[in-house]
Design a protein around this nucleic acid. Structure first.
Length: 118
DNA sequence: AGGGTGACGATCA
DNA sequence: ATGATCGCCACCC
């Protein structure tokens, strides 16, 4: 059952987002990104718009993609071109029990980014 | 049982 | 950055 997946998705707070892969992993399916997608489509009443593809890219097509984007912006999520500004909104799961903060070294952001094609 | 598909992801060209 | 491939996993003919 995708119970674990459902649960993981529901843990993502408003104004934040996560990815299929991350959700899958958090739910105990390290390679189940597709399962997450399937679950999102099947189950209802879930904050489906908060789940994105790797890198914060919207994987939906057509009008649904726009819908998702609007919903996210409506929640205060900002975009960087075509994808969500994960830097600011990615929600990190904690193994609920294990080392919370986990290891993220806060890489030095250096100065400005180089370029980027819209 | 067999084959195709998709709200994915990582790699390589 | 874009497009093609391959690997994964569950569902649907």
């Amino acid at each position: 059952m995708s119970n674990r997946i459902i649960a993981a998705i529901q843990r993502v707070p408003r104004g934040y987002v996560s990815t299929y892969g991350a959700i899958a992993k958090a739910a105990g399916y390290p390679r189940g990104a597709r399962l997450v997608a399937r679950t999102l489509r099947a189950a209802g009443g879930l904050p489906w718009h908060r789940i994105l593809g790797a890198g914060g890219e919207i994987k939906l097509r057509g009008h649904s993609a726009l819908d998702q984007r609007l919903r996210l912006e409506m929640e205060g999520v900002t975009f960087r071109g075509r994808r969500v500004n994960m830097k600011l909104h990615e929600y990190k799961f904690s193994k609920s029990g294990k080392t919370a903060g986990s290891g993220r070294k806060v890489l030095p952001a250096k100065h400005g980014r180089k370029r980027q094609a819209r």
